[in-house]
Design a protein around this nucleic acid. Structure first.
Lengths: 146, 146
DNA sequence: CTTCATGCAAAACATTTGCAGCTGG
DNA sequence: CCAGCTGCAAATGTTTTGCATGAAG
């Protein structure tokens, strides 16, 4: 849990640093984003926050997530057809594995792409800021269900 | 132009094969998707189709693009904040370069990722169906403008 | 002729925004 | 206190859908 706490602490520190307030709703969102392996979407965060704070509005979730995104403390993953999903545990580019059946998203620990970034930059003249590498497929559980 | 024509012919053949009709509007959409390097969005396709067929509706563009996507004849690229963009010239996974300033999208010819796919598959047990590799940055022109 | 496709308008979502009142620091 | 947050509701933007009419094969 140390990792998770340091992530949470980091997020809180970054908020404070910029003079943003730490409301109970915000803290609840931070907690979820700092801890969740499941790359939740806004709706998912909303439901979980409402377990503790039933009057929380969806707009607040959006505002908080957007704020964190702009501060570089969460990474947004957008997919056609569904709302965006968020990774607060590791807000830097890294590969993801998406199951097309159960829609779960997990981190994929394969060699990173920084080498490729450099190659692309050199070949094209672009200044590469970020990247995204996602694999789509069927997870083991869903293969067995079939 | 041979390439483009074969892409167009391929798309037409696939439509016919499945018993879909080839209307003027559809043909116009196919032409744009088969030829465009710019990875247009629905709105862009709409505007260009309307130059030739001013009564075409947006719904028709959506329906045609969705149909082609389901047939695997166009690849959809979704990004947070903007509508999806489409690649009809090469509907198979391949890396893209996105300029964060001018929003242009071009193909990036870097070594492909099939090796990584196999590695991921072996390590995780997922059956990998597809993938996505995108680089975000600032293109040469936009760097100079700054 | 017989589907299937089109265009229109309405609906369905996802996300953002304006604003009055509340509250963290 | 009081700037910044919240909740609500309305606005926005995108994509989908239902249905009557029209056209492809």
């Amino acid at each position: 849990m140390a990792d998770l706490d340091t992530r949470l602490d980091e997020m809180i520190a970054r908020l404070r640093e910029k003079g943003y307030r730490l409301t109970p709703q915000r803290l609840a969102v931070l907690r979820i984003l700092a801890a969740s392996q499941k790359h939740p979407g806004v709706e998912g965060i909303y439901e979980r926050v409402r377990e503790d704070f039933p009057m929380t509005s969806l707009a607040t979730i959006y505002k908080t997530v957007t704020l964190l995104k702009e501060m570089g403390q969460v990474m947004e993953l957008s997919f056609g057809g569904m709302g965006c999903r968020y990774d607060g545990r590791n807000p830097h580019p890294h590969p993801h594995l998406i199951c097309l059946q159960c829609r779960n998203i997990v981190d994929a620990d394969v060699g990173d792409v920084t080498g490729l970034c450099k190659e692309v930059s050199r070949k094209t003249g672009y200044r590469i800021v970020s990247h995204r590498l996602d694999f789509f497929g069927i997870c083991r559980e869903c293969q067995e269900k079939k």
